[in-house]
Design a protein around this nucleic acid. Sequence first.
DNA 1: ATGTATGCATAGATTATCTATGGATAGAAA
DNA 2: TTTCTATCCATAGATAATCTATGCATACAT
Lengths: 109, 109
Amino acid sequence: MAKKNDLLPGTLDLLILTTLKRAPLHGYGIALAIKRLSDEVLTVEEGSLYPALQRLLLQGWVKAEWKMTETNRRARFYTLTAAGRKQLGVELSEFQQMIAAIGRVLQDA
Amino acid sequence: MAKKNDLLPGTLDLLILTTLKRAPLHGYGIALAIKRLSDEVLTVEEGSLYPALQRLLLQGWVKAEWKMTETNRRARFYTLTAAGRKQLGVELSEFQQMIAAIGRVLQDA
DNA sequence: ATGTATGCATAGATTATCTATGGATAGAAA
DNA sequence: TTTCTATCCATAGATAATCTATGCATACAT
């Protein structure tokens, strides 16, 4: 079994927080949003997504409420908290710094 | 104890292969090169580096020989193999595709 | 009635990384 | 000559993140 890696490890929290920036979404919607926005390149497996959402809940970056979807289904909608919005800023800047650093290595070496 | 993460997980092999692109290096030299090229942003711990080198050896991406350094020390010098050079190309392009995809999500969301 | 897409979630395995060590030697400093 | 610092190897154990594989439930279309 080859190791595929649908995702660059360490980026999932950032991706999730980003999709919640504009509006609350349920888990399935988050996964679809990431897939769609990335032009099908990034796929978030459910076994990665839900544990990640638990982590985010525990740390208070998001909160969750049961609501009805447009298709008349019960679903947990996740919303960015104020702390989560702040955290998003932190993680985004850390990520960009990392990427820039990696870029320098890849380019100069 | 806060989790720091000196590195973006999943990028170490690519970084190592890249530093070996021009010339063979020993482990310590690889770590220094990555640190220096990244302007001190990226730090490769020895506990990450040596296991990674073992993986690369096992897969045949690099080969190793004991030699003397300029400072008169014995050290294992790692060299990219032909397969390793090819692998570097693959990983580089996968990485760039990932980063581009992540960029789209971060931007459009 | 049956299938398909939607939606939740967990268990277990795997992998990668970090922390914390430990050992050895060259050369400088004291 | 002793001691310190930098250079070099490497492993063990813990931790964390992700994937694979499931399982359950319901709305709606066929």
